[in-house]
Design a protein around this nucleic acid. Structure first.
Lengths: 211, 211
DNA sequence: CGGGTTGTCTCATTATGTGAGATACAGTTC
DNA sequence: GAACTGTATCTCACATAATGAGACAACCCG
């Protein structure tokens, strides 16, 4: 395991919650001296900072890096109008997810106009093993063969969703479009209702991206 | 120079603009093999990604890291209402900056209601050697002795600003509050008009933070 | 075709990060 | 105040792990 892998492990640990050196050692399993050296090195670069209690937190450089990282995702700009149309069409919230290790990250989100609606913030991390977008991004065979996936109350109670893969020129799944809302409106088989529109949105995004 | 420093240099280079391996080698000065090994390692962790042309770009993990990093900045929540009041009071846009290496990062921003106004996005990186907030954050002696700083057309033509330091319990400058607007409204000595209110806002933020 | 890219891999050398332990320091508790 | 926790930080011999020259294959362009 190289230094980069260790640093990434430290970042991942701190991402969960602020941690003092001792806690960092416990969650990562690194030697105290090692964790200390790496963390202080990252602190010097602004990747980490320390709060008043001396605990390590994510640093302020990450704020600006995250911003430009989000701006650089080409799909974002392209997907936004399509997501807006999808929301106008279905009345439910729509998101765009990309895989990230064992998680998925929401890179674009448009909320339903309804009072009761699903809310996912841009940048929010969700598990890959729950929800319809998870099925798509982890490469579930049935979902990909069918061209879309649905889930009911998997990730969060009372919420159902339908997702479709976005496939680039090479044929690899790069993202998932998702529509989600309360079961009361989506019914227990949301696919019947929304699958064709979500799939159409995915095709529209691919087209807009020039694939 | 350790691996972390090299990785940070690579991140900083990519932050400026997407770069292929050759460009990365040129801007960082590292050996091709070294740049390649580090960049691909960071790619595996989602810190970097590659676009269709193979160029390295900031990865999607940074989007989620940046989000939680921004949420973890305690000053943000505390400062927002004060900034809003400052905007209501002066009619100009107000921002909160923290130093970040040779730059400063905007961590909170409230815009003026006026049609002609200064716009700085949260997460945006600005130089430390320009503008009144730069004077504060780089520790300019005159500015700190006086308790505030002003600048007229330094960072951007036609824009003037006034900034004041936010000082924590240890006496170190941790951030800068700033008010900025078009010279036509602020006049060429904006300090005369706004300094007392910006300084008051800084004190209010320190008070709200419990210092 | 041949000369210029490009990204990727291997491998000997050695620089660099490692970890046990020492040190220091602050906060308890007796 | 002294002894005793828990911290964070530093030192140094050692071996791991990063380094960079160079080889390689793929690609593009004239």
């Amino acid at each position: 395991m190289g230094v980069i892998d260790k640093s990434a492990a430290i970042l991942a640990a701190i991402e969960q919650r602020p941690l003092a050196l001792a806690g960092l050692v416990e969650t990562t399993g690194f030697h105290r001296a090692t964790a200390h050296r790496l963390a202080t090195a990252m602190e010097q670069h602004g990747l980490l900072r320390r709060d008043a209690l001396g605990r390590f937190m994510l640093g302020s450089w990450l704020v600006s890096l995250g911003r430009t990282a989000g701006a650089g995702l080409p799909l974002r700009d392209v997907a936004r109008p399509v997501l807006e149309e999808l929301v106008a069409d279905t009345g439910e919230s729509a998101q765009l997810y990309v895989a990230q290790g064992a998680n998925r990250v929401c890179v674009e989100s448009v909320e339903s106009p309804n009072g009761l609606r699903t809310i996912v913030a841009v940048g929010q991390t969700l598990p890959l093993d729950r929800g319809s977008a998870g099925k798509i991004l982890r490469g579930d065979a049935r979902a990909l063969r069918q061209g879309w996936a649905e889930s009911v109350g998997e990730r969060e109670a009372g919420v159902a969703s339908v997702s479709a893969p976005i496939i680039d020129a090479d044929g690899t799944v790069v993202a998932a479009v998702s529509v989600s809302g309360p079961i009361e409106r989506t019914t227990r088989s949301p696919g019947k209702r929304y699958a064709d529109r979500v799939v159409a949105a995915a095709r529209a995004i691919e087209l807009a991206a020039g694939w």
